[in-house]
């Protein structure tokens, strides 16, 4: 016979101690980026050229159970021919310590504008991908992922 009463009694202790854990684990090691940092990083890369929110699809799981390794896939609507191809895709975060996650450089040999990797996400956020085409035009897309907190955070 399991003793539910005893288990419930410890729940209060978990709540108290767990509260401490949440507070500690949410203390930033260094300041997180915000939307303004993302925009600054984007300007550093592409200047003030106009960006159209089209043609770029960012695929991320709706929920990530651990922010250390989240599968990311980006695809861009492009024929990928010798004179019309995606030159670069930049992955940007509005919440990580650094807003620039990575850059992919494609060539006409790439054949298909689709790239996948695994990224770190320090919390729930919308990851943005900006694609620069061979004609210099810029396109963007973004997707939000909820990053959940693990049960027992080992500090």
């Amino acid at each position: 016979m399991r003793d539910k009463a005893l288990f419930n009694a410890t729940r209060r202790q978990i709540l108290t101690a767990g509260g401490g854990a949440v507070l500690i684990s949410s203390l930033p090691l260094s300041a997180f980026a915000d939307e303004a940092d993302l925009l600054r990083a984007r300007t550093d890369l592409f200047g003030d050229r106009p960006i159209q929110e089209e043609r770029v699809t960012v695929k991320l799981p709706p929920i990530a159970e651990n922010g250390h390794s989240v599968p990311l896939s980006v695809s861009v609507d492009s024929p990928m021919t010798d004179d019309d191809y995606v030159k670069q895709i930049a992955i940007l975060s509005p919440r990580n310590t650094l807003p620039l996650i990575g850059q992919f450089h494609l060539t006409p040999f790439s054949g298909k504008a689709q790239v996948s990797t695994r990224i770190r996400m320090s919390g729930t956020q919308a990851i943005q991908a900006v694609a620069e085409m061979s004609d210099g035009s810029l396109w963007a897309g973004s997707t939000e992922t909820v990053v959940t907190l693990a049960a027992c955070v080992v500090l």
Partner: peptide, 9 residues
Amino acid sequence: FASDFHPAI
């Protein structure tokens, strides 16, 4: 193909 990695890879 080439890629620049930053700390969030």
